[in-house]
Amino acid sequence: MVNGLSKICVVLIGDIVDLAEKEVLFTIESLNIEYKYLGRTGLLLFLETEEMLAEYLCYRCSMVREVTKIILESDFLNLYKNFNLNLFNIEKTKSICVRIKSYEHKYKPEVQKLERIIGEFFYKAGYKINLENPEIIIRGYIISEKIFLGILLAKSYRKSYEERRPSKRKVFHPSSMIPKFARLFVNLSKVEINEFLLDPFCGVGGFLIEASFFVKHCIGIDIDIRMLKGAKENLKFYNIYNVDLINASALKLPLRKIKYIATDTPYGIASSTKGIRHSELVKGFLNELSNYKGILACILTTESNLNQNFKIILKYPQKVRSSLIRWIYILSNYG
């Protein structure tokens, strides 16, 4: 690898894998860090970039399971011939274990045997094996007749999303999105950590909660004062203090400057639109937004056709039920 960059494998979570990939790439771009896209096979996204990104991607990206530095790539049947212990460059004072996952059913019976054989290579070379609490995990992935071996750099803490589920918040509202998707859509806005993020339909604060963990400042706007009171309680419940709440209409935004937006536009009987039809609400909001320049926005809506003075960077359908599709848009009016 050139310029001190490494080949890493980002293991994605498979709910919406195309958007999971975008989340990772947009997050790296928001940090202005160099990377090279090497491709994706199934849930495995391969990049050439800085190793230090691994911990941050696992912390910030909700659709990332783990990140591994790839040391060796081989056809599965030629692994033993291609295996070279010296490539791993691990100090012999470190304890290790080998963990391999097969994404191909026919190789799953071989996983334990493979872990044992590779572990024996390290053991015979003088390494300590610790299956319970190793200092270093040799991680492998079998997919498309290939095996990728490397060193696990970071794993995400999935329980944190469960701890912030809408039902566990101080104030619950049925329209609230689960945290991993709220975090995903915030990241799709490409928000930079030293900027502020706006949610103009903030409800009881789901997007704001997730954004607050890595964005310097957030602003939530809602026309319904009851929603804002709920958002205030939820933010306080999680000890979040880098968010301002404003009781106002998204059709007349009380801000002089806006750059990054992530929002779930209200729809359905559980959401308050003050009697305005969803289509008219979205149209009016985009019309108001067109008064600002240099915007990047991730917007969820049931409207399938948005073309009001914005460039559509991404349009992605999300099936809610057989009769309802929500559309995920990433819009920009740069330049």
Rank of each mutant, 00 (worst) to 15 (best):
120 E>A: 00
222 D>E: 11
3 N>S: 09
68 T>F: 03
138 I>D: 03
281 L>T: 06
42 G>T: 05
199 D>H: 01
31 L>S: 01
69 K>T: 00
68 T>K: 05
238 Y>I: 13
44 L>V: 07
181 F>C: 09
267 Y>H: 11
329 Y>K: 02
248 A>Y: 12
130 N>A: 02
291 N>M: 01
5 L>I: 05
75 D>Y: 03
281 L>E: 01
112 Q>P: 08
297 A>P: 12
159 K>N: 11
272 S>P: 10
239 N>C: 03
146 K>F: 04
236 K>D: 13
74 S>F: 11
281 L>N: 04
171 V>D: 00
150 G>C: 07
330 I>K: 09
30 S>L: 03
246 I>Q: 01
179 P>W: 10
265 T>E: 06
193 I>R: 14
312 I>R: 00
69 K>R: 06
190 K>E: 09
305 N>Q: 14
288 E>L: 00
162 E>T: 09
78 N>W: 14
185 F>Q: 01
26 F>N: 06
175 S>Q: 04
24 V>I: 08
179 P>G: 03
2 V>E: 08
59 Y>E: 15
104 E>T: 07
191 V>I: 13
330 I>G: 07
117 I>D: 15
61 C>G: 11
274 K>N: 14
283 K>E: 12
250 A>Y: 06
171 V>T: 11
132 E>A: 07
253 L>H: 12
56 Y>D: 05
79 L>P: 13
120 E>F: 06
119 G>Q: 05
300 L>R: 04
287 N>G: 10
299 I>C: 03
18 D>F: 14
49 T>H: 00
288 E>W: 02
44 L>T: 07
141 Y>A: 00
244 D>M: 12
134 P>W: 14
248 A>M: 01
33 I>T: 09
167 S>T: 15
93 T>W: 08
251 L>R: 09
290 S>K: 13
276 I>F: 02
182 A>G: 04
266 P>W: 03
188 L>N: 07
294 G>Q: 13
241 Y>D: 15
295 I>E: 08
196 F>L: 09
94 K>D: 10
66 E>H: 12
129 I>G: 02
135 E>M: 08
227 M>P: 12
180 K>E: 14
327 W>F: 01
136 I>Q: 05
157 Y>V: 13
60 R>V: 15
192 E>R: 08
211 A>K: 13
335 G>D: 12
303 E>C: 07
241 Y>T: 13
281 L>P: 02
35 Y>R: 03
264 D>W: 01
19 L>R: 00
286 L>D: 06
1 M>S: 12
261 I>K: 06
224 D>M: 08
77 L>H: 15
229 K>T: 13
331 L>W: 15
83 F>C: 07
197 L>E: 09
144 S>Y: 14
71 I>Y: 12
317 P>W: 10
31 L>A: 04
34 E>G: 00
259 K>F: 09
291 N>R: 10
205 G>N: 10
